[in-house]
Design a protein around this nucleic acid. Structure first.
Length: 547
RNA sequence: GCCCCCAUCGUCUAGUGGCCUAGGACACCACCCUUUCAAGGUGGCGGCACGGGUUCGAAUCCCGUUGGGGGUGCCA
């Protein structure tokens, strides 16, 4: 008789944002369910009224879809709602009471603490076990845990973990108001949903012996357990919503690719095949085919954004060009010409960390008519002095102006040849000679390859900008002429102010060393006011680890 | 306090008694390439927490120490 298909579950509680740690847990369950031909059950733990909003459930489903866990997949089941099972929770509790496995107690939390202090014990001492209390307002139902022996949790990632039953107190099943507590609800749900494998975060390991007792007391065989290590921050503390950037949605908005995020998340605590002596980049298909919980590491993993960045850049570079152009377009202000961007796209694709860095790399192509760069551009920075400083800068600019006005075609190779012809007279190298031209034409000291950029810019606009720069140079450091300062921004006027420009202090990313981009140009419609960042809308509690 | 988990380069990891003078990836440094910046290439820096065992032999097994983390609620 073939073993029944395994049933996994992912049980997040709805909050305003989706935790990366949760994403990893979901991915683990998903990979297993798919590889083993089982089912991934999504259960929404919505019992806490206070934190329950319908749109949050959509958020969970969307976040899952983003990382490839599609509700349309045949292996996907749900969403199911814990609240729909409240009847079963209470029924289970009553059954445990009827069978003498649980009893009522009228002590308040304070009283329990006080008594523990007097007796010198650590927790609840079983005070009401023999008092024969029945249900009533304010009375909690407690599970009568065994006093002796040990409970062994067979964990797929850690092996057998044993707990001394004497250290497990008679825990609460039903609150004073009759509602079930997490421990009970969770187990009953799993039983009801015929879950066979519980794969979750290590923070749940201490709860596991209690849950296992419940499974057995309720007459069922406990599931296979697997507790993956937690994700931690640089302080080696569990990633917390309060202090760390954990919202999956935020990474998505900042221009991280789902594939990169998924790949990276899976490398925390596990090594994809072939990574032992090569790249850790692996497709989901490869990951899914090879992932086994038994191979998951035992120790906590630091969620390292630097490494995530490396993965993301790698994935961006690997995108087919048309895909890249399409995806990048989403980061551009509406009034930026798509064809013009497409012309330079191949050169920006290999210079990115996140998709959000795109606008700042090409903004010079979209200055409004007659504009000259202003605040936020190197044009107005020390970079100007550095590029224009040499005494040969002015004459060279004059010569380039002349050469470019006369150049036959207007293609990168011709523009390069023309500049090389000019610079030969000054006995300088291309690396130096291009600097003043670059700053003059693009407003930045770094960016996509110069001649390709100029080709896209066009002859008229290039000459115009070189002329203006030349005049400024002559005017001895006078104020820059500002037709419309701040580049494209102001005139963009397409309503999408947004300002991706800020591009999150990516100073080190794609260039523009000094300034982190122009605050107001380059708005990426998407990011607009949204920026949920989780924190704002969700309860500050860290105790929301999906279970 | 009590319970539980963990411990290989800065980080993520490979490693399950000899193949390890410990391998890869990210980061960092240098050089090469080069049209700035990237990318790419080459090389470098850098680790088995400590102390005892077991064994012919230990990063690998056992014990202890130390250090981290998680849990300890009428939260999930």
């Amino acid at each position: 008789m073939a073993a029944a298909a395994p049933r996994f579950r992912f049980a997040p509680s709805p909050t305003g944002s989706f935790h990366v740690g949760g994403a990893r847990a979901a991915l683990h369950n998903w990979a297993l369910a798919r590889r083993l031909g089982g089912t991934f059950v999504l259960r929404i733990e919505d019992t806490d009224e206070a934190r329950n909003r319908p749109e949050w459930v959509d958020g969970i489903i969307e976040a899952l879809a983003w990382i490839g866990i599609s509700a349309d997949d045949p292996h996907f089941e749900g969403p199911l709602f814990q609240s729909a099972y409240s009847g079963a929770h209470v029924a289970a509790a009553e059954r445990l009471f009827a069978e003498g496995r649980a009893y009522y107690c009228d002590m308040t939390g304070e009283q329990v603490q006080e008594r523990a202090r007097e007796l010198g014990v650590s927790g609840y001492d079983g005070h009401s076990r023999e008092r024969g209390l029945g249900p009533g307002p304010g009375r909690v139902l407690r599970f009568q845990a065994p006093d002796e022996g040990t409970t062994v949790v067979r964990d797929l990632v850690r092996g057998d973990v044993s707990f001394d039953n004497s250290t497990i107190e008679d825990f609460v099943l039903l609150r004073g108001n009759g509602t079930p507590v997490f421990l009970l609800a969770n187990v009953v749900d799993d039983i009801e949903m015929r879950i066979t494998d519980v794969v979750r975060g290590e923070e749940h390991l201490p709860n596991t012996p209690k849950q296992q007792m419940l499974w057995e007391a309720l007459g069922h065989v406990p599931p296979r357990w697997a507790h993956a290590p937690v994700l931690v921050n640089e302080q080696r503390k569990k990633l917390s919503k309060r202090r760390d950037k954990v919202a999956l949605e935020q990474y998505r908005e900042e221009g991280y690719l789902a594939d990169a995020m998924v790949n990276y998340l899976m490398t925390l605590g596990w090594t994809p095949p072939g990574a032992q002596d090569g790249s850790e980049i692996a497709s989901w298909a490869e990951i899914e085919a090879a992932f086994r919980v038994e191979d998951v590491t035992h120790s906590p993993a630091f969620f390292d954004i630097k490494k995530l960045n490396a993965f993301n850049g790698e994935y961006i570079r690997r995108m087919p060009l048309p895909d890249f152009v399409e995806r990048a377009a989403a980061e551009l202000p509406d009034d930026w010409d798509r064809d013009r961007f497409a012309a330079i796209a191949p050169h920006v694709q290999q210079r990115l960390v996140t998709m959000r860095d795109v606008p700042a790399l090409v903004d010079f192509l979209f200055w409004p008519e007659g504009a000259v760069p202003g605040a936020g551009f190197d044009y107005d920075d020390p970079s100007w002095a550095k590029s224009m400083g040499p005494e040969w800068a002015a004459p060279l600019l004059d010569d380039v102006l002349g050469a470019y006005a006369a150049v036959d075609g207007w293609h990168a190779d011709e523009l390069k040849a023309a500049l090389e012809a000019v610079m030969a007279r000054y006995e300088i190298k291309l690396g130096k000679a291009q600097a003043p031209v670059r700053v003059a034409a693009t407003g930045r000291s770094v960016g996509p390859p110069l001649f390709e950029s100029l080709e896209v810019l066009g002859r008229d606009e290039t000459l115009r900008r070189l002329t203006i720069a030349r005049q400024r140079l002559a005017g001895d450091d006078g104020e820059p002429v500002r037709g419309a300062s701040a580049g494209s921004g102001e005139s963009a006027g397409s309503g999408d102010s947004a300002g991706s420009g800020e591009s999150a202090g990516n100073g080190e990313s794609a260039g523009n060393g000094e300034s982190a981009g122009n605050g107001e140009s380059a708005g990426s419609g998407e990011s607009a006011g949204a920026n949920p960042a989780g924190d704002g809308v969700s309860p500050p509690s860290d105790r929301t680890a999906p279970d």
